[in-house]
Write a protein that binds this DNA or RNA. Structure first.
Lengths: 344, 344
DNA sequence: GCGCTTTCAGTAAGCGCTTTCAGAATGTTA
DNA sequence: TAACATTCTGAAAGCGCTTACTGAAAGCGC
């Protein structure tokens, strides 16, 4: 920018007839004779002076903009977590730079690199990692010098290979609890709408669910498991694929609520009623699912808290020698989308 | 940050045994002997060098972080618009700094001030203005020197008093069209869930609706109009208030989809069915309303485009002498939440 | 009233980078 | 080979700010 040139501290100092140092001190609330301070403040106001944050950062003052990177702000899950982050950031007088990668690893790394260049005091990564471990490693390589330089990194629900402070939902336990609840309703034949295998979120939720089923003597037919991206349309398509191929289940577990929403739409479009023909359960408890008809059964995660805790972690020094891991448990919430079934 | 000190260009230059200038040129892709360039690049990679964005900005290189301010990232409306903004920003290799004010004017002004300090090349304001015109004026005062300094400001759906480039949804026309459609279904008695009177979004949508009704000889009973904040809970409470006071309408128009969602929940909690007992219509067409049961009738705004166009506006020079205003029209979409009614 | 400490303003040295300018090195033409 | 044009590199001057460091003025005890 700067087609015209800006008002600088020097202009203020000259207008107030004091030295640069005095002007700086007055503006930063350090001890200065009241009379001089007033003159400086008045001059600054008159000239609509705004300090140049870059010059300030360069000269040593610490910089108050933290970076938050997520896959897609448009996704209610990320929006909710980001909301939590922003609340804590705001309370600490920090600005946040929120980036959406749209699931493009290159863009994610570019974001980290720019944040690094900005000398942001903290970077938060929200959401599952990448399918390709090479990207995960590239990210790690980008993060390493940042951490070495004193940067703080915290992560929400991310691939564990990243050795940084993390807030991790108890995906496995949550999915297991859900399985138990669903078994309790009498379901024995399940279908699962899964996501990319490489994501720990997927392996944990899917694994927890499958293992709990197995423990109860119920096996999950691999033909009833479909993969799709973690989006509404991904859920819709996965469900449609399953329907086309032949659905053989009384209950569908979608690994995320967003997918579950898509699944319900697909079911409806195929003339099947939820929960009368098929029960559907999700995971996350994004706010909207309460207002669906029927309301979605799911595993409720404290989404806001996920973000808040991550931000808090990034803001406090890690005094221990190991990375901190905060596990947050989910709670099964059975609502209208899952019905009882006669166990046969 | 910087507990430890950072790798600087000087370190790279020394490692590559060239001058600072040469290192800078090599890194910025300017003409340098291939051999030297390789040496510099290799050294930079070896040292994990990241240029300091502040130093760079200070030294004159333009800064690539734009600011976007909205009320609440958690609201699907803002998320959708912000998504559009980010897409265009990403395509132009810009980082966006997304701030959530949570409807606090002071925070909004603080954001603008920080963005100004950062010398962000552009600031985007998304969403309705404030109820108190004094805040609006304070904001204007903050924006003025920014604009004078060459900053770009664009606004989506904002109080018109701000004399900056704007993307404005055709709220009045959209609401009028909706009124016509609803009349066409036979409705004659309406209730409206409105927002704060001071917002132009409210006066336009409400005014357009009421006037069109009036033109058709239908008057809107003031007792059937309730105000509430533009949130899901705001809609829920407004609807509940109306229900308690006595609903006398066959159709409820909520000024935003988010409110409509709350209204539907309130209706349901009162044992009323949508649309059999009452029809409900919203405004905006946020993505989720398609997946509600019944799907919500609404006025569809091109939300993504709102953000995209605003970003584009902020990116292109305004060659004319007047501020640019881009009006985007909405389209009535009748879905399951509105039913036909015998006009009596 | 004289040395002493204590305030407080001013001078100047960077922070890490870009860029102008001048000079060295190379290539071109007669 | 001399004279000149053409690259390309390096030295150095800032960008706007913070912050030692320095020195002047003022307050203190004796």
């Amino acid at each position: 920018m700067q087609s015209r040139t800006h008002v600088t501290l020097e202009d203020v100092a000259r207008a107030a007839d004091v030295s640069l140092a005095t002007a700086s001190r007055a503006l930063n609330g350090m001890r200065v004779t009241p009379q001089l301070r007033d003159r400086v403040l008045a001059a600054a106001a008159r000239l609509a002076y705004t300090p140049n944050a870059h010059a300030r950062a360069l000269a040593g003052a610490s910089h108050r903009t933290v970076g938050v990177i997520c896959h897609d702000v448009t996704d209610p899950y990320f929006a909710a977590v980001a909301g939590g982050v922003m609340r804590v950031a705001g309370a600490n007088d920090l600005l946040v730079m929120l980036g959406s990668t749209f699931r493009d690893p290159e863009r994610e790394i570019a974001y980290v690199s720019m944040l690094r260049a900005e000398r942001a005091p903290a970077i938060l990564l929200i959401g599952s990692g990448f399918e390709d471990p090479r990207w995960e490693r590239a990210l790690e390589a980008e993060l390493k010098p940042y951490l070495d330089g004193g940067g703080r990194v915290a992560v929400v629900s991310r691939h564990r290979s990243l050795k940084v402070d993390s807030v991790l939902p108890e995906n496995r336990a949550g999915a297991a609890a859900l399985a138990r609840a669903l078994l309790g309703l009498g379901h024995r034949r399940f279908a699962v709408l899964a996501g990319p295998r490489a994501l720990t979120t997927v392996t944990d939720r899917f694994g927890g669910f499958r293992d709990e089923l197995a423990a109860a003597g119920v096996t999950l037919d691999p033909a009833q498991v479909v993969e799709g991206p973690f989006t509404r349309d991904g859920g819709y398509q996965a469900m449609t694929a399953l329907l086309t191929r032949g659905l053989d289940a009384t209950c569908v577990f979608a690994l995320t609520d967003v997918m579950a929403i898509g699944a319900c739409a697909a079911l409806r479009d195929h003339g099947l009623a939820v929960p009368d023909d098929v029960s559907v359960a999700g995971f996350d408890d994004i706010p909207i699912v309460r207002d669906l008809t029927p309301a979605l059964s799911t595993v409720a995660l404290p989404l806001h808290q996920l973000g808040e805790k991550a931000m808090e972690m990034a803001l406090t020094e890690n005094t221990g020698r190991r990375r901190r891991i905060l596990r947050m448990s989910g709670e099964v919430v059975l609502r209208g989308s899952t019905a009882k079934v006669d166990a046969r």
